[in-house]
Amino acid sequence: MTRKHLPGILAMAAIVVASNILVQFLFGQWLTWGAFTYPLAFLVTDVMNRVYGAGPARKVVIAGFVVGVICSLIGTQIMGEYGPLVTLRIAMGSGLAFLTAQLLDVAIFDRLRQGKWWRAPLVSTLVGSSIDTALFFTIAFSDALSFLEPSNDVSWATEGLPLLGAGPIVPLWVSLGLADWLVKLSLALVALVPFRAIVAHLEGSRAAT
């Protein structure tokens, strides 16, 4: 890791910290503000992968994971209305989902990097985002994994409600996860624009030096 990789590390750290803060604030009925900042982590990973390669991209992911663990540890010490802001299950789900999804993103991007410019960032982000959402919401809120933290009452998340307010009856956490996933998919498409621009700028800067 060299000094030229520092902006990627700082960007990833900023996204992780911002998302951990903004996840405390609701946006509508199914989302939090953190849902709109967290997907930017895939943009950072993909830019690093395209410009510097898979190795530096993985190191940026590890840096983001470490920052996330620190945020989770801090969150466990802050008491909200119903207990710690970050429970053990949320910490486990967040960390495992981030690390798995981001490293998978790096691997898929690296495999597809020789194709059309949009293919690697789009496919890797779509797959990574899907895995991220499935892992986090299942680990954090599924009743089937209540043994991970028996003292944590997640009955509010397992209450049966219409899917996104209009579909079949499912646990609330399924609606939350689906809404989060749809935001990630939308931002994966939107992020192609800044991805193209940032990569062109960085590659132009490298060529000029």
Rank of each mutant, 00 (worst) to 15 (best):
121 P>R: 12
122 L>V: 06
122 L>G: 10
123 V>C: 03
124 S>P: 04
125 T>R: 11
126 L>Y: 01
126 L>S: 07
128 G>F: 05
131 I>C: 13
131 I>G: 11
132 D>G: 14
132 D>Y: 13
132 D>I: 07
133 T>P: 15
133 T>L: 10
134 A>C: 04
134 A>D: 06
136 F>W: 03
136 F>G: 14
136 F>I: 03
137 F>C: 00
137 F>V: 00
138 T>R: 01
139 I>H: 10
139 I>M: 05
140 A>Y: 01
141 F>W: 04
141 F>D: 14
142 S>N: 06
142 S>V: 00
143 D>I: 05
143 D>G: 09
144 A>R: 03
144 A>V: 03
145 L>W: 11
146 S>P: 12
146 S>M: 14
146 S>T: 14
148 L>V: 05
148 L>R: 09
150 P>R: 04
151 S>Y: 08
151 S>I: 06
151 S>G: 15
152 N>F: 06
152 N>W: 08
153 D>F: 02
154 V>K: 06
155 S>F: 02
155 S>M: 03
155 S>Y: 02
156 W>G: 09
156 W>F: 13
159 E>D: 14
159 E>N: 15
160 G>V: 11
160 G>H: 14
161 L>N: 09
161 L>Q: 08
161 L>G: 04
163 L>E: 01
163 L>Y: 04
163 L>M: 01
163 L>V: 01
164 L>R: 14
164 L>C: 15
164 L>M: 11
165 G>K: 05
165 G>D: 12
166 A>E: 12
167 G>E: 07
168 P>E: 02
168 P>L: 00
169 I>L: 07
169 I>E: 10
170 V>D: 07
170 V>M: 02
170 V>I: 03
171 P>G: 01
171 P>N: 01
172 L>G: 05
